[in-house]
Design a protein around this nucleic acid. Sequence first.
DNA 1: GTATGTGAAACCGTTCACAGCA
DNA 2: TGCTGTGAACGGTTTCACATAC
Lengths: 224, 224
Amino acid sequence: MKSAKIPSVSITRLSLYARSLELLDEKGVEVVSSVRLADICGINPAQIRKDLAYFGQFGVRGVGYYVKELLFEIRKILGLDREWRLGLVGVGNLGCALLRHAQFESHGYTFVAAFDKKPKRIGMKIGDVEVAPLQAMNRLVKEKGIEIGVIAVMPAWAQKAADMLVRAGVCGILNFAPTQLRCPANVFVENVDFSLRLNVLRYRITSQRSRRQRTRSKPPQRLA
Amino acid sequence: MKSAKIPSVSITRLSLYARSLELLDEKGVEVVSSVRLADICGINPAQIRKDLAYFGQFGVRGVGYYVKELLFEIRKILGLDREWRLGLVGVGNLGCALLRHAQFESHGYTFVAAFDKKPKRIGMKIGDVEVAPLQAMNRLVKEKGIEIGVIAVMPAWAQKAADMLVRAGVCGILNFAPTQLRCPANVFVENVDFSLRLNVLRYRITSQRSRRQRTRSKPPQRLA
DNA sequence: GTATGTGAAACCGTTCACAGCA
DNA sequence: TGCTGTGAACGGTTTCACATAC
């Protein structure tokens, strides 16, 4: 395992490979080439080989990759080979949905605590967890061994939630609020910002249309 | 406006700038320099100037950017200056949360329809929309002028949902399912894949720990 | 003096092309 | 022969540095 600089996108793609390998494994496929896998994921074969090369040599020349074996290795690399304990901050619409989200359980995450500011929500039971007040965060993070905090609060409160999680001792934060969080370097932050993605969509559609209009209408546009 | 190739990340950053400018505007700040804005967004000032340069010249040398003016321009570029009509497919936990999500309204999106496969859910009213059967999609997309489809179904059904949306005539798809969708080139797809982001977090934490362990334990590792 | 706009340089990630090995 | 692993070439994005304008 070379400890060279690994591009962040490579890590993201590794998850993608894992997904495709799971599907192949379910179908009973035992061996897959980088070309086949690349085709499934919609990327370049060399890319896959490069990505994997950061972590070792998992293939057999002239043959390809053994599906089960490669899946096992990728899982180990990403830390998917064990359960992770999550704590949720913000039990609103989105927060509730996340607590109830079935995917999580089957992919090695478990919400073991949920926190909210509103007294009304304290004590509610959603799925398997009971909503606790913010003051309980320090204690529960330690007690339950929470490693990752999930933020699903209003944007105005996101930074405060992050600060509290950091103070309580989490190692990483998954942030659903549309805010750029400031955290110490030893706490990793990943953003799930669907408003951003939606804006990209809006731009794409908008610019496609104006391009079409420009190419369709040959007559000179007077209003530059 | 130069029609050069615009990096996709630049578009994403424009949204970020818009957000910060909104905050500055609310605070009553009238002028901002690229250095200040960059500091807020946590990026390089030259980056901002380059990003903006793709679309025109919005600043004043020696002064900076007028907040309101720049915000207006960015909004126009991204298509944030008008309402967009969304249609949801999949009214499960996540889908419901999205329908009820307050942010949407205030940011120029409106869900005008929701679809689900399960007969049980048809007719339910969530927020302002009534859940319709999948068969109604073709009709409702046209009738209600839906431009963007939002997919929040189980991964196994995501491709089917996408196909239906494309057939019905949407211009773009926001995909919450952990699946790589195959769509025709004229339909834009943006993925909101939080399982992917969570995996990146898991990797970061895992690799940080193993690095620490390696550096802490000076004695020679025998098992190389 | 100050901050933008922009060519040039540095950097990084992707793709190519082929050596190496089953 | 066939496919992996990888140095080298390529292409694109980020950063620098400075001319330009207020």
